[in-house]
Design a protein around this nucleic acid. Structure first.
Lengths: 105, 105
DNA sequence: TTCATTAGCTTACAAAAAGTAACTAAATAA
DNA sequence: TTATTTAGTTACTTTTTGTAAGCTAATGAA
C-alpha cells in the first residue's frame, strides 16, 4: 500500500464512523443533552454513548455535568469540533445540489 | 425523531460508508483501475467491489471497460462525484490543522 | 489444442460492529 | 419507603467486515 496521507486517513476514520456526521450536525446547532440527541437522531443509547465517548477522547466533543436534579449533562463542540463546520456545510451543500427528493427513500 | 435534513442524512449514508472517503480521495486524483486501487488502499477486493458498485449505483462513479488484453476496467468520477471535491478537500485541511503526527498511529 | 497467465471479481466462512430491549445508578421528591 | 428522572450499561441477536481461496474470460506460449 502506497502514500495515502495518514492524517486524512485518521480524519476519515473519525468522521466516517457511523452516526458521527449526524451527531456533529446536531452539535453544530448548539450544545445538546444526551436524551435530546437520542430523540433527535435515529440512534440507540448504546451507540450514542459509544460515539460521544469516542468524540470526547478525540477532543472534538466536550462533556459538561450540571449537578441539578435530575442531573443534566450537556455535550458541546470543542474548537477542534467547531472547525469541522465547513466539512458538514459542504456535505449539506452537496446534498442539496445532488440528492434528489425521490432517492431520500 | 425530529427534523434532520433527509438529504443530509442520505449524503452521510453514502459518504460515511467505510472506505468511501479513501476511494473518493484516490479517484479525485484521476481514473484508476481496480487492481490499482486495491493495492493503494488497505481494502480487500470484496469490499472494494461492493463500494464501487454502490458508488456506481449512486451515480458517483463511472465504470469503463476497455476490451484489451488483459481486460482493463477504469473507474472515474462522474460530475456528481467530482463535486465532492470540496468535501474531501475540507477534510484534508481539517486533518492538516487538527490531527497531530503522534495520533496517526 | 492444452496449459498458464492476468485482471477483475465472487464465494465461503470467521470476526467485529451495530441494533434492540431490558436493566442499573444516583439524586431527589412525595 | 417508594417513585421518578436522566444518563447511561448489559446481554444478546443481526448485519457488516475481513480474509483467503476460487472462478471466469481473454489471450498467448508450447
Amino acid at each position: 500500500m502506497s502514500e495515502l496521507c495518514p492524517r486524512f486517513e485518521k480524519a476519515m476514520q473519525i468522521i466516517s464512523k457511523r452516526w458521527v456526521g449526524l451527531i456533529l450536525f446536531e452539535l453544530l446547532d448548539g450544545p445538546k443533552r444526551f436524551s435530546e440527541m437520542e430523540s433527535n437522531l435515529p440512534i440507540s443509547g448504546r451507540l450514542l454513548s459509544d460515539r460521544l465517548k469516542m468524540l470526547e477522547k478525540e477532543g472534538i466533543v466536550i462533556r459538561h455535568i450540571y449537578s441539578e436534579f435530575p442531573v443534566r449533562i450537556e455535550y458541546s463542540l470543542s474548537k477542534k469540533g467547531e472547525s469541522l463546520r465547513p466539512v458538514i456545510q459542504d456535505i449539506q451543500n452537496w446534498a442539496n445540489d445532488w440528492i434528489a427528493e425521490e432517492e431520500v427513500n
